[in-house]
Design a protein around this nucleic acid. Structure first.
Length: 430
RNA sequence: GGAGAGAUGGCCGAGUGGUCGAUGGCGGUGGUCUUGAAAACCACUGUGCCCGGAAGGGUACCGGGGGUUCGAAUCCCUCUCUCUCCGCCA
């Protein structure tokens, strides 16, 4: 959520920001202006009446103390009470509409974010590694995996439907190796604290990160008398780790990492990436989340992005990093870098991580503050998140980039100690 | 699932229906003292919203919501959460 004071005082900036994001400001800006004016008018009325009421009550107390009779004041005060109640009901309605509207407004992009309409306007900021040249036609992972007996889509479909997969043997082990490798890297070398959070969260947690109320259709909700959802990313539980807390500013930044499965309904993406592991209802991810002071958050975003890139460097996978334009950013983000890994079968770079600074947007929704020097006035923290990395997509990248002509796949050196020393994944002997 | 206890300021912990934003302690900040530090002592130390250029004024907040009352942290109802014991259970 944006700062209500900012919204009121800078409606023009909000209007521009919404337009840059490609959404129509009209249904937002005018109602906000109107609700704010009406709200302030009601507050002044109500508080004036309350002031009178308090004065009258104090007078009664004084009279009783002096042994005088004050019952003649009761009627007037009672009438005032009725009027207050009536006005407060109106005010409550206004406040509710205003809050609901504010919850649907996306974050304002940072000044360094390029204005653009779509992914075509994103800006590549750096590239690492050379895509390998093949002396044969590189196969897509959905051919490689099943041929190696480590990936099975058909059996998954029978028990769960489309957009699910089964990993078997060295495929399952490779996924586990990737998770361990990533967690070790981030905890031992990058200073993150490992967390295993709940995989089911309540609606408040999802409102905190900005997944609700606008994006319920992307989530899996648990049936029955439970107000619980499967997490779409560990960003949700990690960010909510400090929900409602006031952190000691001297402890910031706090850095957390977690491996979790992630669950997304992928509603509305019917035609996209229907084959393979790219877009699944369930996938594994190692997530990075930081809580920082406002002055550090952009430096920490660069560091977080570098931490995610390091995974690909160690795995010797070619990638590029892209700064998303205003029209391609997520709802909560003020600035986002996507990291894209090279996929030979698609002859292109595909998103494998998304690293964002949400500034105080989530902190305000989730009530996460800090005291700058352990004392003084509490202020909202800035929260950042990024994939470090998406495990399924990393597994795809390993299979495709390390494939050999005979269909076997070389295990990247960085992973071998996590794979019991296996150097090559071979097709099953026939 | 059954029984009980609780929720107060950054933290701990008092609280009589009537100047209670709320005693006290801890913590924090500033000061006195000291070569320095500690100790001791003194002072200060919540937040949101509204009006105002500011100074300042007003209002609200004692888990959430509702009620009783001229007036509620205090009485009543309700919800949520936490804890303890019993049962069940990976």
């Amino acid at each position: 959520m944006l700062d209500p004071a900012f919204v009121r005082d800078h409606l023009d900036r909000l209007e521009a920001a919404l337009a840059h994001r490609g959404s129509d400001p009209a249904p937002v800006v005018a109602p906000l202006r109107e609700l704010d004016a009406r709200r302030r008018q009601l507050i002044q009325q109500v508080e004036g009446l309350k002031r009178d009421q308090n004065a009258a009550s104090a007078e009664v107390a004084r009279a009783k103390k002096d042994g005088r009779d004050a019952s003649h004041m009761f009627d007037e005060n009672k009438a005032r009470g009725q009027q207050i109640k009536q006005l407060e009901a109106q005010l409550d309605e206004i406040e509710t509409s205003r809050a609901a509207l504010l919850m649907t407004i996306p974050n304002v992009p940072h000044a360094s974010v390029p204005v653009g309409a779509s992914a075509a306007d994103n800006v590549e900021v750096r590239r690492h590694g050379e895509p390998r040249t093949f002396d044969f036609e590189p196969k897509p992972h959905w051919d490689l995996g099943p041929a190696l007996g480590i990936l099975d889509f058909e059996r998954a479909t029978r028990m769960s439907g489309s957009r699910f997969a089964v990993l078997l043997r060295d495929g399952a082990r490779l996924a586990r190796a990737l998770i361990d490798f990533m967690l070790d890297l981030h905890t031992r070398e990058h200073g993150y604290t490992e967390v295993e959070p709940p995989f089911l969260v309540n609606a408040d947690a999802l409102r905190g990160t900005g997944n609700l109320p606008k994006f319920e259709q992307d989530l899996f909700k648990i049936a029955g008398e439970w107000d619980l959802y499967l997490i779409p990313t560990a960003e949700v539980p990690l960010t909510n780790l400090h929900r409602g807390e006031i952190l000691d500013g001297r402890q910031l930044p706090l850095r957390y990492t977690a491996y979790t499965p992630c669950f997304r309904s992928e509603a509305g993406s019917y035609g996209a990436d229907v084959r393979g592991l790219i877009r699944q209802h369930q996938f594994d991810k190692v997530e990075l989340v930081k809580f920082t002071t406002p002055d550090q958050s952009y430096a920490e975003l660069e560091a977080l992005t570098a931490n995610a890139e390091e995974v690909l460097k160690r795995l010797e996978l070619p990638y590029r990093t892209v700064l998303l334009c205003t029209g391609d950013m997520g709802f909560a983000s003020a600035k986002t870098y996507d990291i894209e890994v090279w996929l030979p079968s698609q002859n292109t770079y595909r998103e494998i991580s998304s690293c964002s600074n949400t500034e105080a947007f989530q902190a305000r929704r989730a009530g996460i503050r800090h005291r700058p020097h352990g004392t003084g006035k509490a202020d909202f923290v800035h929260t950042l998140n990024g994939s470090g990395l998406a495990v399924g997509r990393t597994l795809i990248a390993v299979l495709e980039n390390y494939q050999q002509k005979d269909g076997s796949v070389i295990v990247p050196e960085a992973l071998r100690s996590y794979m019991r020393g296996i150097e090559v994944i071979h097709p099953p002997r026939t």
